[in-house]
Computed example of a mutant assay.
Amino acid sequence: MAIATFRMIPLVVVAAMIGVPVAARDDGRYANSPLKGWFESLHSKAGGPCCANADGTALDEVDWDTRSGHYRVRLQGEWIEVPDDTVITEPNRAGRTMVWSYYVNGRAVIRCFMPGSMT
């Protein structure tokens, strides 16, 4: 019975590692962009920099809108209301709608949101 237990240890370790969340980081793909400094300076009223842990995601127009006076975004097929204190109110120099999110227990949490044009 002890040998069977030892054979199960690698399986248990692999199963545990699959469920470990991975922290997102700036992957460097915009390192040479002339807007890099501007992106890094963005902060929401919710606190903390938008680009602290991850690059933002540009959204297609079908993946964001307004409802009852609030923005909402579609991430991983789910519509999420954007908290007002995460909305970036300065002019959008990138032009595209952007969202910075992170995940807690598999659910998206909005760090920052910057609307683009709805044309």
Rank of each mutant, 00 (worst) to 15 (best):
E90D: 14
C112N: 01
E78W: 08
K36I: 07
I80D: 06
V12E: 05
L75D: 07
H43F: 08
S101L: 02
E90M: 14
G106C: 07
N32D: 14
V14M: 12
W100T: 02
I18T: 11
I88K: 01
V73S: 09
G47T: 06
A54C: 09
F113I: 02
R93M: 12
P83F: 03
G116H: 08
G69T: 01
G37C: 01
Q76G: 14
P91N: 10
R93C: 02
K45N: 11
H70R: 14
V13W: 10
P115E: 06
P83C: 05
A31S: 10
Y103C: 08
N53T: 06
W38H: 14
T97Q: 04
V14W: 06
D65M: 02
A24N: 11
Q76H: 15
F113A: 06
E40I: 03
Y71I: 04
F113E: 01
W79R: 01
V87T: 03
T66F: 03
V22N: 10
H70L: 09
P10L: 00
E78F: 09
W64M: 08
P21N: 07
L35E: 08
V73M: 09
T57C: 09
G28N: 01
R67V: 10
V20D: 11
S44A: 15
V14G: 06
G56Q: 09
P83Q: 00
D65W: 07
A54E: 11
N32W: 07
R72E: 08
G95M: 06
S41Q: 07
T97R: 01
V104L: 13
P91G: 06
M8R: 14
A2Y: 14
G47S: 03
D65K: 11
V99K: 01
R7A: 15
K36M: 11
V62Q: 14
N32A: 11
S33Q: 05
F39E: 07
T86G: 00
E78A: 12
M98F: 11
F113Y: 09
A31M: 04
F113P: 00
G37K: 15
G106V: 05
R107N: 15
R96H: 13
L35Y: 11
E90F: 04
M118A: 15
A15Q: 06
D65R: 11
T5I: 13
